[in-house]
Design a protein around this nucleic acid. Structure first.
Length: 258
DNA sequence: ATGTCTCAGGGACTGAGA
């Protein structure tokens, strides 16, 4: 089965591209971030017309997450249990598969703005809460996948210019340490299970012709629990939607599970 | 090279966030 994640930077603007992408790739799961839509405005009819179900948690202007699934979602939950957050950044649902239940967590990690800012402190607190929560979720759901915009480039090879980005937000040591703590719970970065082209990125700033020059970061990740990682057959970044006329600044990331 | 895009408020543009 194919699972995917895509920060669409406004589902209202990007809906036609999401519809096209669903039709072209027919994923079993597509996690969206930065939908920027309140739940009443979510284009459920359009998603259902494409042959999919959706669960979503949105708000006006900022944030917003959704999980689009071919099969009916079960056991839906919103947010991080035990962490009060007015920002809509996490939604989870389960699917029945022939190999047993598959748990999906769709996450939009805070950007953090700049190292040392209030938003950066919030990001680190948020990541600590996510880690505590995921430890319990992993015990409850052994077949667990966490997909989303992590707003962290895990290593220097995930950065077009590691010198320029050194100690900057998205690359700083505390952020990378926070991501390593999540991985240490028993997750694998699906992308790095396979040989990949050098300079593989999932996000490119809209400015400075960054995409054309491939000046990007790999910050959109698919983390798989050990059981799922064993069944992962491929993981790739689909740069094609980034070449569209009005693209998101992020590209979708996909993984194939047996 | 503070270089682009999106959204809200308000009714043209500015500011925030990314």
């Amino acid at each position: 089965m194919k699972i995917a994640t895509w920060n669409v930077n406004s589902l209202k603007v990007r809906l036609p591209q999401v519809q096209d992408w669903l039709a072209a790739h027919r994923p079993d799961v597509l996690c969206l971030q930065e939908t920027k839509q309140e739940d009443l405005d979510f284009p459920l009819a359009e998603i259902e017309a494409a042959g999919y179900h959706a669960v979503f948690s949105g708000q006006k202007t900022y944030n917003g997450v959704a999980i689009i699934t071919a099969d009916e979602p079960r056991d839906i939950s919103r947010g991080i249990a035990g962490f009060e957050d007015v920002q809509s950044r996490v939604i989870s649902s389960s699917l029945e598969t022939s190999s047993g239940p598959l748990r999906i967590v769709c996450a939009y990690v805070p950007n953090g703005q700049s190292v040392g800012s209030d938003k950066y402190e919030y990001k680190l607190r948020w990541l600590a809460a996510l880690t505590t929560w995921l430890r319990a979720e992993l015990a409850r759901y052994p077949r667990l996948a966490v997909l989303g915009d992590f707003n962290i480039a895990p290593e220097d090879r995930d950065v077009h210019d590691p010198v320029a980005w050194k100690d900057q937000v998205l690359c700083s040591a505390p952020e990378r340490a926070a991501l390593r703590e999540i991985l240490a719970l028993g997750f694998v970065d699906a992308f790095r299970r396979f040989d990949q082209p050098d300079k593989s990125f999932s996000w490119w700033d809209y400015r400075m012709m960054a995409f054309r020059r491939n000046r990007g970061l790999r910050i959109d990740l698919i983390l798989l629990s050990g059981l799922l990682a064993d069944s992962c057959q491929s993981c790739a970044i689909d740069k094609e939607p980034r070449r569209a006329e009005r693209p998101s600044d992020h590209a979708p990331v996909t993984a194939e599970l047996a």
